[in-house]
């Protein structure tokens, strides 16, 4: 490696007008928000919502959650995915927990397809907030996917922690996925 990587620093408490301005009502266009899939995007439209908890089990109202996902056919809108993707679906969403009364993040999107035969459908998640000097990565799987049983990433996770990566259906088209930064149910975070 020729150069040293720039260190990370915290996103801090005041990211909203830079990263999620429209969600928080600031006068700057957002590049992405929680509404990831306009109605014309192919696939099963779903909502994924949840809250973020600290080590005292208190709800965190200033976290930033980002989602990166494949489209409903398992294709990423990125040049490294040779299959290309649904042109109207970028696959990226961003939501702060500071505008919902219950401090939820809410993503309206489509359920991703499986990207290969080794991995069940999943959302890739970036978690960051004031009090984190470096973001953390996790994944959201779906409780109603049989392929979870053979997913190679879930297989790397101790069995008693896998539940922290599984979103549960809560009725309608919605799934709940809470993120616990610490504690007995600490969400599994990955070094990717």
């Amino acid at each position: 490696m020729a150069l040293r990587q720039t260190p990370s620093q915290t996103v801090g408490p005041y990211f909203a007008y830079g990263l999620t301005p429209e969600q928080y009502g600031y006068d700057l266009a957002s590049i992405a928000g929680g509404d990831m899939a306009p109605p014309d995007v192919e696939g099963q439209h779903i909502r994924v919502e949840g809250r973020v908890f600290d080590g005292n089990n208190a709800v965190i109202p200033d976290a930033l959650i980002e989602i990166w996902q494949a489209d409903s056919l398992g294709r990423y809108a990125h040049p490294s995915d040779p299959r290309g993707s649904n042109a109207t679906f970028k696959g990226f969403g961003r939501c702060g927990t500071g505008t919902d009364k219950q401090s939820r993040f809410i993503f309206d999107t489509v359920k991703p397809g499986a990207i290969d035969t080794e991995q069940a459908p999943h959302l890739n998640v970036i978690v960051t907030m004031r009090g984190m000097l470096l973001h953390a990565y996790t994944r959201i799987y779906f409780a109603d996917e049989p392929a979870n049983a053979t997913d190679k990433v879930l297989g790397l996770v101790p069995a008693d922690r896998r539940h922290t990566l599984i979103a549960q259906p809560i009725g309608g088209n919605a799934y709940r996925f809470d993120i616990h930064m610490q504690g007995p149910d600490e969400t599994v975070f990955f070094d990717i």
Partner: peptide
């Protein structure tokens, strides 16, 4: 201290 992960990250 209450917001950072405490368990080792799992390499992917």
């Amino acid at each position: 201290p209450l917001r950072g992960p405490t368990k080792p990250l799992i390499p992917l």
